[in-house]
Amino acid sequence: MNFAVLQFPASNCDQDAVHALQHLGHSARLVWHKDASLGDTDCVIVPGGFSYGDYLRCGAIARFSPVMQAVKQFADNGGLVLGICNGFQVLTEAGLLPGALIRNRDLQFHCENIFLKTATNDSSFTSQIPVGKILRVPIAHGEGCYFADEETLAQLKANNQILWQYCDATGNLTDTANPNGALQNIAGICNEKRNVAGLMPHPERACEPLLGSDDGKWIFESIFAALKNKTVAQAA
């Protein structure tokens, strides 16, 4: 599979994403923010970092870069797009995902390992995560508090668009397990078409035991499985 990992000025998890994907046996390359085309791509990763210095709002300026027009088109055509951390913020600013990410409720930058509960296996980003498995992955953000108005939140629930929620080690969605004050402990969501997803935690930093956890690989394994199914379906 060919992965395109976007690179904005001040992206800083782009190399991590490329490394994780290659480590898991797939081809990944960086695509510069000024490129108007994604080239031959099966899936787009919008990586973490501080694109454009987080000026104005996180992700606000990145969404207007030429490559984001290509990402929009790719997503409109059903292509898989995953935004991680700053990438999640970029996708909400771009209107590809509903809601917004605001300042952590304690105003602190959180850099720690957290636990994630997968709310549904019904998506290209969660299908391979073992049922009931609690993922241990790191977060590193100051503005990761998910917010959406009541109507949007109701739609997210009705359409099963909440993919991951912060939980404690045994899977309870407690307030203490919520690192940033996100509504409903939301750590990640997908769009209504289920081909675009975003999450604040960093699965790409947890894909090999050497790094303390390889739980993040399940998210990428889900994407690989979805792409494989797509290829099989197209060939048939």
Binding site: I102, R103, N104, R105, D106, L107, F147, D149, E150, G181
Partner: peptide, 13 residues
Amino acid sequence: TPKKAVVDPQGIT
């Protein structure tokens, strides 16, 4: 300004 429904931790502090 932040919308009224949005929690504003800076404002609260």
